[in-house]
């Protein structure tokens, strides 16, 4: 599904190049649950962003379903990522001005899903996450765990093949964290590929493969 070949990421600061990622080579197959681990500043989030097409690599090749992402224009990228990829962030990143219902609805709007179909899918997802009662609340009326639940619901509502989670439990206490991880695991069982960035060994264990990053290099 994902092939990264000699990916490099650096920032040109005047004369000095600051490297974030060095010579990354990896493959992720469909149905995997990969955890990326490593100390702060190792480049975990950058790697995740490149996989998620939110950021581009400075050098190297990236194939998504054998299509060369590194050669695509913005329109194509946006097309690709909205149909295949869902994101979950540490800070949840819900849209504050929208209710739970409307937050869930938004990705479907961008995919131009028809009204009836859209309503059905939002209702189904709300039901699945036990959030029907909270559908008209705004994000700031929810607890952190609940917000992250909404964020996950929003990430999967468009039925992506790939979910990218950046420290999804980072702001949650352990019980809530566990709940979120269980959900991710269940999704994976149903066939969704998951890549998560995490600090926690426990959470990393939910996955079936761990990639260690240090100073931008993959540790063998």
């Amino acid at each position: 599904m994902i092939k990264l070949h000699n990916i490099e990421k650096y920032y040109n600061n005047k004369i000095i190049k600051t490297f974030v990622l060095r010579n990354i080579n990896m493959e992720i197959a469909e149905g995997e649950f990969v955890s990326i681990m490593g100390p702060s500043g190792a480049g975990k989030t950058t790697l995740l962003n490149i996989i998620g097409m939110l950021d581009s690599a400075s050098e190297g090749e990236y194939y998504f379903y054998d299509e060369p992402v590194h050669k695509m224009n913005e329109k194509k990228l946006s097309q690709l990522h909205k149909s295949y990829i869902g994101f979950v962030f540490q800070q949840y990143h819900l849209i504050d001005e929208l209710t739970v219902y409307e937050n869930l609805e938004t990705p479907l709007l961008y995919q131009k899903v028809k009204t009836n179909d859209r309503k059905g899918r939002v209702a189904e997802t709300l039901d699945k996450f036990n959030m029907v009662a909270k559908k008209d609340l705004f994000p700031n009326q929810l607890s952190g765990g609940q917000q992250q639940l909404v964020a996950i619901a929003r990430a999967i509502i468009a039925q992506p093949k790939l979910i990218l989670a950046d420290e999804p439990t980072g702001n949650l206490h352990s019980d809530q964290g566990k709940e979120i991880m269980e959900i991710l695991k269940a999704l994976n069982k149903q066939g969704t590929t998951i890549v998560q960035v995490t600090h926690s060994e426990t959470n990393a264990e939910y996955g079936n493969r761990i990639i260690h990053l240090k100073d931008g290099w993959i540790e063998k």
Binding site: L54, H81, H93, I95, P107
Partner: peptide
């Protein structure tokens, strides 16, 4: 900006 970022991750391109 945050909203822009989120919307873009949710699949919005620049034009919308």
């Amino acid at each position: 900006a945050k909203e822009v970022g989120v919307r873009k991750t949710l699949g919005s391109s620049k034009m919308p």
